[in-house]
C-alpha cells in the first residue's frame, strides 16, 4: 500500500495535476474568503466562504480522480498491480489516501483563514473549523465517488464528465425541491424513473439483461401496488429520496453550527460507499 501511495503522490507531483488542483482550490477559496469575510460582505462566519466554494469540487474532483484507475487500465499497468502480492483493497486504499492527501493541502492552508478573522471576534471560531472539517469530508466523499467512476471506464474524459455531473447533481438537487410537484402521483413517477435507473445500474454491474428487467419490473410493480392500496404513502417520498443525494444541504446543516454526528456520518459513509464500490468494480472486472 505504501508503494502505491508514494507512486500516486509522485505522479500528482510530476504531472502537475496535483499542483493545478491545489492552486485552483486555493484561488477559489481565497477569492470567496475575500468576498464574504474580508471585504465585500464582511460576514463573520467562515462557512459562507466554504459554502460558496463548491466550484472547487467541479474542478478539483475530476482533475484528481479521473485518471486514478482509467489510466492504469489504458496503460495496462493494472496488470502489474493486480498480479503483485497486494490485495485490491490495499491498491484502492493506497490510491485513495494519495487523493485525499493532495486535497488536504489546500484545506490545511485555508485553515489559517479563520485565524485572520480572529480580530473580528472569536465567537464563531468553533463553527468555522467544523465547517472546514465538513468541507474536507465532503471533498473526500467526492473523491471516493470520482475514484469509483474512474474505475468503471478506460476513458479519462468520460470519467471526468461523469464526476462533474455527480458534483452538479449533489450540489444542485436542493434547488429542485420546490420545482417538484408535491403530488403523490408525481412521487410515483419519480420512483418508477428511479427503478429504471436502478435497472440500468444492475445491467451495468452484472451485464445480465434479465436481472435488469426483473429489477425494473419488480420495483415498478411493487410501487404501483403500493400506490393502488395506499397512495398517501408517497407523500414527501420524492424529497426523501432526493435528500440522499443532497450533499449541499448536509454541508449547510453542518456548517451552520449544528455539528451533528448524522451529518458527519453522512459524508463518511458516502466516502466509504465510494471506496467499496471501487473495490467491487476492480474485482468485478476480473470476472467479465
Amino acid at each position: 500500500m505504501r508503494a502505491i501511495y508514494k507512486r500516486e503522490l509522485r505522479s500528482y507531483a510530476v504531472s502537475m495535476t496535483g499542483a493545478i488542483a491545489i492552486a485552483v482550490a486555493l484561488l477559489i477559496m481565497g477569492l470567496m474568503f475575500r468576498n464574504y469575510n474580508l471585504s465585500t460582505y464582511h460576514l463573520l462566519t467562515f462557512s459562507y466562504t466554504l459554502n460558496n466554494s463548491s466550484l472547487v469540487f467541479y474542478i478539483v474532483v475530476p482533475i484528481l480522480s479521473m485518471r486514478v484507475f482509467a489510466e492504469e487500465r489504458k496503460l495496462k499497468t493494472d496488470q502489474l498491480l493486480l498480479t503483485a502480492p497486494v490485495s485490491v483493497g490495499q491498491i484502492v486504499m493506497g490510491k485513495y489516501l494519495a487523493l485525499i492527501t493532495v486535497f488536504a493541502i489546500p484545506c490545511v492552508i485555508t485553515g489559517f483563514y479563520p485565524l485572520i478573522m480572529l480580530r473580528f471576534g472569536k465567537e464563531t471560531i468553533k463553527w468555522d473549523y467544523s465547517a472546514l472539517l465538513a468541507y474536507f469530508l465532503m471533498g473526500c466523499a467526492y473523491l471516493a465517488i470520482g475514484m469509483f467512476i474512474s474505475s468503471t471506464t478506460e476513458n479519462v474524459i468520460i470519467a471526468a464528465i461523469l464526476s462533474i455531473l455527480f458534483v452538479f447533481v449533489t450540489q444542485m438537487i436542493s434547488n429542485t425541491y420546490t420545482l417538484m410537484s408535491a403530488s403523490n402521483f408525481a412521487a410515483l413517477i419519480f420512483l418508477v424513473i428511479l427503478a429504471v435507473l436502478a435497472g440500468f445500474l444492475v445491467y451495468f454491474m452484472t451485464k445480465n439483461y434479465w436481472a435488469a428487467m426483473i429489477t425494473i419490473s419488480g420495483l415498478s410493480a411493487a410501487w404501483l401496488i403500493t400506490y393502488a392500496i395506499k397512495a398517501s404513502w408517497f407523500s414527501g417520498k420524492t424529497e426523501a429520496v432526493m435528500k440522499v443525494l443532497d450533499f449541499a444541504t448536509h454541508f449547510n446543516d453542518f456548517a451552520n453550527g449544528s455539528f451533528t454526528i448524522p451529518n458527519l456520518l453522512y459524508f463518511i459513509s458516502a466516502g466509504a460507499i465510494g471506496i467499496i464500490l471501487t473495490i467491487q468494480s476492480v474485482l468485478k472486472r476480473r470476472w467479465s
Binding site: 507512486r7 509522485r10 505522479s11 495496462k76 499497468t77 493494472d78
Partner: peptide, 12 residues
C-alpha cells in the same frame, strides 16, 4: 509476470 504489453508507467 511479464504480460503481453510491458506494464510500465511512461512518466517514471
Amino acid at each position: 509476470y511479464l504480460p503481453e504489453l510491458p506494464p510500465v508507467y511512461p512518466d517514471m
